[in-house]
Amino acid sequence: MIEGFTALYIFMLAAFTGYEVIARVPVILHTPLMSGSNFVHGIVLVGAMVAMGHAETGLEKAIGFLGVMLAAGNAVGGYVVTERMLEMFKTSKGKNK
């Protein structure tokens, strides 16, 4: 368990990281970046899996199932559309990396 002030510090540092990481993003990447960050919170999948793995009653299992399904959709869908968008960005020299 991550508790008390440790949790607060992690929260604070991660918040600053998020802000700094995209602070200088050019407008042309706003849409892909929004999509990319949408993919990153697809990590909710691991939480949904753990919640479902520990579910006991039928109701808990059903909600857990729904959670895993939604989270998988977030992660996979987020990846596919971001990848499709970024794939298209190239310079006139045809370089793509």
């Binding site: 991550i2 992690i10 929260f11 990281t17 998020g18 929004m34 960050s37 990153v40 990590i43 909710v44």
Partner: peptide
Amino acid sequence: MIIAGTVVGSAG
């Protein structure tokens, strides 16, 4: 989840 979620929260 904490780190990824918070990063997206602030970046978003």
